[in-house]
Amino acid sequence: MLAWAGLVLACLFWAGNALVARAFSDAIPPFSLAFWRWSVALALLMPFVAVPLWRHREQLRRAGWRLWLLAALGISGYNCFLYSAAHSTVALNLTLVNTCLPLALFLGSGLLLGEWPGRRAWLGIGVATLGLLWLIGRGDWRVLAGLSFNPGDLLMLLAVFDWALYTLLLRRWSGLLQGVPGLVQLGALILLGVPLLLPLYLLELAGGARFAPSPENLVAIGYTALCASLVAYFLWNHGTRVVGAARAALSNYLMPVFTALLGWLLLGEGLQPYHWSGGALIFAGLLLASRPARS
């Protein structure tokens, strides 16, 4: 249950991250936000993991290219796709495209890991998907038929498959880092991921895209660095190892629910009946899929 609680909390922080990405899309360029998010996260984490990183250096070195690939997918690629998509598509479409993630992980877990979910898990994903579509459609199925898409949605789709591959490989290669504490693993990934973001950031600067170091912008970067990066990634990585990639992915259905709640609390956006009914279906599907099968 602690692993599931951590996954839910991670999704809450990532819902906040989505709000930040949309709210500051005109103020902070996407690669700048990604680079400074992880640079600040690395600065916050290093005092706690520098010595353990050195102690586990041989085990990390043996992970070799696999660690670099995980960093490229989970630290660099996903965030660049997500923040770029936030500049060019609406929030509703971001949420709709994100529904591909649990299905991608369900299929990927079976094909790559041999971990085919049981019937109860498939039923849970069906119930949660209905709840999410009801939420996106604002309680009217005809709204879904009228949705329009743009090139930014392709970036979000790439982000979804990027994150799915990161999660599956993290699970598949977990044995390589067995015995290395979770925070140390995260520190290693960030340490490799920041240099991969640097060329994109410099390219953005060369194109004249900059942001002002205003208090609001710095708070936004601080939130993404601490909550959406360090805390959320640690909880996600731990939850994936404990409950499996496919079942962990079901927690992503909570993100639009949390986004609606945060919009109500922070932006004064009203909650409608379809928010409650859609959220209830999502929670029901998550509970159904997370319950262990009877022996």
Rank of each mutant, 00 (worst) to 15 (best):
G16Q: 13
R57E: 07
A104H: 01
Q178L: 10
G74L: 09
L101W: 08
A209R: 13
R37K: 12
S148F: 04
R172L: 06
R119A: 03
L7F: 04
G124F: 02
L226Y: 08
A232I: 01
L105M: 14
A206F: 01
S277M: 06
A159Q: 08
A220Q: 05
N217F: 09
L103Y: 10
L94H: 09
L19W: 09
G110I: 03
F258T: 10
R171S: 00
Q178K: 15
A248Y: 10
G278P: 07
T99H: 02
L113D: 01
V90T: 13
C80T: 12
R291E: 02
L158Y: 15
S39E: 13
A85E: 01
G268D: 14
L7S: 10
R171I: 08
A232N: 02
G182A: 13
F13P: 04
T259L: 14
W65G: 09
Q272G: 01
S84D: 01
V184E: 14
D153I: 11
Y201C: 07
M156A: 11
L155N: 07
L250V: 00
L45A: 05
S76K: 00
Q59G: 08
P256S: 13
N237Y: 04
F106W: 03
W141H: 00
V49N: 05
P117E: 03
L186G: 08
T224R: 03
R138H: 11
G6M: 12
L7R: 05
I136T: 08
L42K: 07
L103H: 10
L271Q: 10
L169W: 08
S25C: 02
G244T: 09
L169H: 14
V40N: 00
L288S: 04
L33N: 09
R22N: 10
L287A: 14
S295F: 01
G244C: 04
H87A: 14
W116L: 14
S214F: 08
A260C: 05
A71I: 10
L112V: 07
P213V: 14
A246L: 02
P151T: 11
L7V: 02
L226V: 00
